[in-house]
């Protein structure tokens, strides 16, 4: 139960919504799978809740190989992966990440944008989006701006969003044929937050083989490990090279111990998972 009073508006246009969001302690709501939980626990006490679900512009989806994928903030997690086949086909890592957010009911209500704005270090959608060089289109009364997802998160629960600013849509370029994995280690096998999550995407796997790696639950924010990517760039995927690649990832993360896992295990997995995933994708040259 929410024990405090708050006002609620459901504007029809983006303009009205942005006006409302400029008021004191105004919070936007889409699926509410994070906001309502926080309100119920008394951790967030909005004076005004601005429901964005009636704003048509936020439900736009568009894909072409030339321009990539753009989807509005309103798209539910399940809608995105169940109604738009190209998500699975052209962004397999993202598809896998979305599929393991919360439970099925949560994914029926929750959105990718909500998952990003919640800015949990354990976000299951962020690592894949990091590997796909996603960009977020932000809008406020002051205008629009585009922020790379690598620059969006500033800390646990914190983003570059300013007062009155929301993420209007997400754009993911299509950089060519790719394969990928999102691997989530969690305490139970469904409906859980990650102990560690790793997205590994390989653009042009049979050609230039551009390997990208990003992780959840090992740092204050979801992070991409460019240093490791640079190391492996152009190199043969021998076990020796892959191990060094994994070592760089291991050395780049700084996890904590909490109810979901120990720092030690997370650190260990940061090194083991890239090898496991590359092996399962049959990318490693020699031996098992």
């Amino acid at each position: 139960m929410i024990t405090f009073s708050y006002d609620y508006v459901k504007p029809k246009t983006l303009n009205e919504a942005l006006d409302a969001l400029n008021e004191d302690d105004a919070y936007p709501i889409l699926g509410g799978t994070d906001l309502i939980v926080k309100m119920r626990a008394g951790r967030v006490k909005p004076k005004l809740v601005v429901d964005l679900k009636s704003i048509d512009e936020l439900f736009h989806v568009d894909f072409s190989k030339e321009s990539g994928l753009t989807f509005g903030a309103g798209l539910k997690l399940n809608v995105l992966i169940e109604e738009f086949d190209y998500v699975k086909e052209y962004y397999p890592t993202l598809y896998q990440g979305i599929r393991v957010v919360g439970g099925y009911q949560t994914r029926n209500r929750g959105t990718v944008v909500g998952n990003l704005c919640n800015a949990s270090p354990a976000s299951d959608t962020a690592p894949a989006l990091l590997t796909y060089n996603a960009e977020l289109n932000l809008i406020s009364k002051n205008g629009e701006r585009t922020v790379k997802i690598t620059e969006f998160f500033t800390g646990p629960g914190k983003t570059v969003l300013e007062k009155g600013e929301i993420v209007k849509s997400v754009h993911i370029p299509f950089e060519g044929e790719n394969i990928g994995r999102y691997y989530k280690v969690s305490r139970i096998k469904a409906v859980d937050l990650s102990t560690i999550g790793m997205a590994l995407t390989i653009i042009d796997p049979d050609g230039t083989r551009d390997i990208r790696v990003a992780l959840a639950s090992v740092a204050p924010t979801p992070i991409r490990i460019f240093k490791a990517e640079e190391f492996i760039k152009g190199k043969e995927l021998t076990m020796k090279n892959v191990e060094e690649f994994a070592q760089i990832i291991h050395d780049s993360v700084n996890p904590i111990t909490d109810a979901r896992g120990t720092a030690e295990y997370r650190k260990r997995m940061a090194k083991i998972l890239p090898i496991k995933l590359l092996r399962e994708m049959k990318m490693i040259k020699e031996g098992l």
Binding site: R187, I188, K189, A190, V191, L193, D258, A259, R260
Partner: peptide, 16 residues
């Protein structure tokens, strides 16, 4: 206590 809700107190689901 750290496991104060079902977010962090985990019990088996059908997947387990």
């Amino acid at each position: 206590p750290l496991t104060v809700s079902f977010t962090d107190y985990k019990i088996p689901t059908i997947a387990d």
